[in-house]
């Protein structure tokens, strides 16, 4: 399959990208092209113009805000994996990046593109929500910051307006005392997760977050995190409660993911069946 005919423009910066996007309702931003490329070829999307933001100078940088790091939307998975940009966490982002797809995909795929694409199974969608990250959204009219927990509105759907782009991803810093567990189930290396869960325990900030991901819709932050960690709630029931739509096997995989992410974060090391 070949894409439909489209115009192409590379935007030097975010402002130009936004103004180009306002010119046609059928225009679309393209970053790494790792999700959009296949969709173009399958003609699942038929834009009349692509605005390439992968080289926009202000989307490629990283800013340290003291208690958080803001990543430019066009920072690639590979740059995070390689430590070419600072890690807001004690190495967690790098280790997540390393297990996204394959290196060839990571060389081009971007953190902003991944979030904008909003695949419920994608790593950044789940990991960054668990880490309480937010996105900076920009359009010609102005800029707003939205917590990821509010950003995703459905599978492959976000609050982004047509002419609005993700410019930055703000990730709160996590110190040495913080604990983290992320576990995903893939059918093969490079496959999208069929189930995932993430656990954050940050005593410095007094935060405990448990997330269930890859549930065919945006991830869910579990409300009784402390009780779950204390082992007071049977995990199978927890999963059924928040994701009753999952099939038998998907449910089993999510229970496994939850249990193993908890084990990783609590460093009991026991991820056994």
């Amino acid at each position: 399959m070949k894409p439909v005919r489209f115009d192409y423009a590379a935007a030097p910066d975010a402002a130009t990208a936004c103004s180009l996007l306002t010119q046609s309702v059928a225009a679309k931003p393209i970053a790494g092209g790792q999700s959009l490329g296949p969709m173009l070829n399958l003609r699942l999307v038929r834009p009349d113009a692509l605005v390439d933001i992968s080289r926009a100078s202000d989307l490629r940088g990283v800013r340290d805000e003291g208690n958080a790091i803001v990543y430019g939307a066009a920072v690639t998975h590979a740059e995070i994996e390689d430590g070419a940009v600072p890690d807001a966490t004690p190495g967690w982002l790098a280790s997540v990046a390393r297990r996204i797809a394959y290196r060839a995909v990571r060389n081009r795929g971007t953190i902003g593109g991944s979030l904008a694409h909003a695949d419920p199974a994608a790593d950044w969608v789940n990991v960054l929500t668990a880490l309480d990250a937010s996105v900076v959204l920009t359009r010609s009219l102005g800029t707003r910051t939205v917590a990821l927990a509010e950003f995703f509105t459905g599978p492959f759907a976000t609050v982004l307006a047509h002419d609005e782009i993700v410019t930055g991803v703000r990730v709160p810093k996590r110190g040495a005392a913080a604990r983290w567990g992320y576990w995903k189930f893939c059918l093969k290396v490079g496959d999208f997760a069929k189930a995932s869960a993430a656990v954050l325990i940050d005593p410095e900030r007094g935060e405990t977050r448990i997330l269930l991901g890859a549930i065919e819709k945006p991830p869910i932050l579990l409300s009784d995190a402390s009780a779950i960690l204390a082992g007071r709630m049977p995990l199978a029931a927890v999963v059924t409660d928040v994701a009753p739509h999952l099939s038998y096997d998907s449910h089993a995989l999510h229970v496994a993911a939850l249990r193993r992410a908890i084990a990783l974060a609590t460093a009991s090391g026991e991820v056994a069946a």
Partner: peptide, 14 residues
């Protein structure tokens, strides 16, 4: 399945 995302082939890692 219409792409290799849904039709799974083993790769080198498998």
């Amino acid at each position: 399945a219409a792409t290799f995302a849904d039709y799974h082939l083993p790769g080198a890692c498998e």
